[in-house]
Design a protein around this nucleic acid. Structure first.
Lengths: 235, 235
DNA sequence: GTCTATACCACGATAGAC
DNA sequence: GTCTATCGTGGTATAGAC
C-alpha cells in the first residue's frame, strides 16, 4: 500500500494487455459493452483479435477487468477515508454528513477525472448494475460488499435509534439515488441546464444531493417499522 | 378511456404482430435485450424470422414497442391520478405525500402484475435508462417528459418556498431512488431479506421509500441555493 | 398487404502454425 | 505470445409466394 514503487519491467515497450485494457475502457464508455466489437478494440490497441481471448479469456472478462481497475481503488479510498474519520472522532460516532462525504467524494473524484474515464465510466457502471447476466451482478455485489458493510456500521453508530433493518433499506435508497444521479443518462445535461454559466461541476451536485439524502436518512420511521420485531401481520 | 370496445377484426386468428410483441417481452425480460436472439423470439411466437423486420423494422424498434406498450398506460395513469387529486383539493395544493403516491402506485402496480411483466419489466426499463444509444435515451425522455412536467408543477404548488431549480434537482434524485429501487438487480432479493416471511411485497417497499423521499424533498436548502435567484433566470 | 425462404455480412470464439 | 484461418451464430435485406 505505502510504497508506490513500480517494477522495472513496467517501462517495457509493452503490455499488449494494458493497451487492450485502455482501448476497451474508452470504447466501452463511448458505445457501451454490447455495441463495441472486439475487433474495434483490438484495432484501436494495435493488437491481434485473438490477443483478447488469450489475455482475458472472453469479452465479458475483459469488461470485468475494465471495471475492477477503477472500482477497486475507489472503494478502497472510501473505506480509507471512513477509517480516518473514525480515528479522528473516536470514541464518538462519525457524524452522518461526514460519512456521506467519505462515500461520495471518491465517486465524484472519479467522475471528474477525465483521465480515468470521467462520468462516462460511472454510466457504464450504472448500466452493469441492471444487467440480467448473473455473472456481472455477482461480480459487482462482491466488489461492493465489504465497503457497504463498513459504511452501514458507521451509519449504525451515528444513528443508534434507527433500526438496523430500516437502515439497510435507506442505505439502499441512498446508493440508488447516487448511482442514478451519477450514472443517469442526463446527469451532465441536467448539470448544464440547472447550473448554467458554471462549468459542469460535480461539487455542486454533491452539495445538492447530500442534504437530500441526509434528510431521508434521518426521516421519521414509517408506520410499519415497529411491527417487525414481533411477527408479520398481513398488509 | 371509457369505451373498451374492440374492433371486430381483433378476434381474427392472428396478429402476428401481437404474438411477436408478447414473446419479445417475455424473453427480453428473462434474458435482456442483447442476449435475446431474434430467432428465439420468432420461434417462441411461431412466426417467421423476417416477420419482425416487416412489422417493426428492426430489433431496436421492436424493443421500443415492447416498452411503450407498458410505459404509456402507466404514465397516463399517473397523470390521471394526479389530476384527480388536484380536483379533490382545489384550490389548495395537493399535499406532497399524495403527489408521491400518484407517482408511485402505478409503478408498483405494474411491478406487482405478473401478467404485465412484473418487476422484471422495470428492470428492463432501468437498464434502458443507462443505455448509451442516443436512440433509446431520446425515446425515454420523450415518454416521460409530459408526466414529469405535471408532477413538477404539482410539487411546486405544494412547496412554494422551494426554489424551482432546487425542485428540479430533487425530483431527479427522487426518480433516481425510485428507478434504482424498482429496477435494481437485487430489489427482490432485498425485499426477501429484509422482510422475511412476507411474500415479496412491493407495498412494503413503498411504505419505506415514501418517508425517505418525502424528507429529502422538504430538506433544508443547501448553502449555495440562494446565489441562483439573482443571476440566471430559469429557461 | 402478409408472410416465407434464403442469402448476406459482422460478430465472438477457438484451433493450430509460427 | 502472437498470428491466420475458420466455425457457429447473430441481425438484416430481399426476392418472391400466397
Amino acid at each position: 500500500m505505502a510504497g508506490t514503487v513500480v517494477p522495472l519491467s513496467a517501462s517495457l515497450p509493452a503490455a499488449t494487455k494494458d493497451r487492450i485494457l485502455e482501448a476497451a475502457e474508452t470504447l466501452f464508455m463511448e458505445q457501451g459493452f454490447e455495441a463495441t466489437p472486439l475487433r474495434a478494440i483490438t484495432a484501436a490497441a494495435g493488437v491481434n483479435l485473438a490477443a483478447v481471448n488469450y489475455h482475458f479469456g472472453s469479452k465479458e472478462e475483459l469488461f470485468q477487468a475494465v471495471l475492477t481497475r477503477r472500482l477497486d481503488p475507489m472503494n478502497q479510498q472510501r473505506v480509507a477515508l471512513l477509517a480516518e474519520l473514525e480515528r479522528a472522532h473516536a470514541p464518538a460516532p462519525v457524524p452522518c454528513e461526514h460519512i456521506l462525504s467519505a462515500l461520495f467524494r471518491p465517486a465524484l473524484e472519479l467522475a471528474r477525472d477525465r483521465r480515468r474515464g470521467g462520468s462516462n465510466f460511472l454510466r457504464l457502471l450504472g448500466r452493469a448494475y441492471a444487467d440480467p447476466a448473473p455473472f456481472i451482478r455477482q461480480f459487482l455485489s462482491q466488489q461492493y460488499a465489504e465497503m457497504i458493510a463498513r459504511f452501514k456500521a458507521a451509519f449504525g453508530h451515528a444513528l443508534p435509534s434507527l433500526p438496523k433493518r430500516e437502515l439497510s433499506w435507506r442505505l439502499h435508497f441512498m446508493m440508488g439515488a447516487l448511482s442514478y444521479t451519477l450514472a443517469g443518462t442526463d446527469a451532465l445535461k441536467l448539470i448544464a441546464e440547472l447550473a448554467p454559466g458554471d462549468e459542469p461541476n460535480d461539487e455542486l451536485l454533491l452539495r445538492r444531493l447530500a442534504p437530500f439524502l441526509l434528510a431521508g436518512l434521518t426521516a421519521p420511521l414509517p408506520d410499519i417499522a415497529d411491527v417487525e420485531a414481533s411477527t408479520h401481520p398481513a398488509p
